[in-house]
């Protein structure tokens, strides 16, 4: 059948045309196009990969920051607590010290007062004794004639005693 009978001319020209077109397109079309497509695809893949990496890094950084913040907060709480404790201790210490000092001063003062009182009493006693002796001397020295005179005299003497 005519339809199934290949023409030799068309066979040769088709073969020639295919080979020419193949080598032309291979070097001038397919190579640059496929290279560009590949470059673009790897570029996109790389971009996505690096974006994911950056995202992961950001997340890690954020976690780290949060951990740091939490730690700082904890530390601050501890520090405040410690400071408060120290302050309280200082105040109570100062109070204790002040009280003991006060107690000491009071005790010393009391001791001193007692001593001075005792000294004064001793002194008074001594002076009274001396006075009594002096008065008695004077009285004895005078004649014990008149009772009234004696009494006046004693009065006179007593007035002369200056209790200090």
């Amino acid at each position: 059948m005519e339809l199934l009978n290949p023409g030799v001319g068309l066979l040769v020209w088709t073969l020639l045309a295919f080979l020419v077109v193949f080598f032309l397109l291979k070097s001038f079309a397919w190579k640059p196009i496929l290279a560009s497509l590949k470059e673009r695809e790897t570029g996109i893949a790389d971009a996505i990969a690096s974006a994911d990496k950056v995202k992961a890094e950001m997340a890690a950084l954020k976690n780290e920051n949060e951990a740091m913040m939490a730690k700082a907060r904890e530390e601050r709480a501890v520090m405040i607590k410690e400071a408060k404790e120290t302050a309280d201790k200082m105040v109570s210490d100062a109070k204790d010290k002040a009280k003991s000092e006060y107690d000491r001063i009071v005790a010393e003062a009391q001791t001193a007062i007692t001593q001075q009182k005792n000294a004064a009493l001793t002194d008074v006693k001594n002076q009274v004794g001396a006075l009594v002796i002096e008065v008695a001397e004077k009285v004895l020295n005078r004649e014990l004639s008149n009772r009234g005179d004696q009494e006046n005299y004693i009065k006179q003497l007593a007035e002369g005693v200056k209790l200090n």
Binding site: V21, L24, L25, F28, A29, W30, K31, P32, I33
Partner: peptide, 9 residues
Amino acid sequence: LCVLMIGVA
């Protein structure tokens, strides 16, 4: 075909 494809390339 060649003109189109080389143009695209």
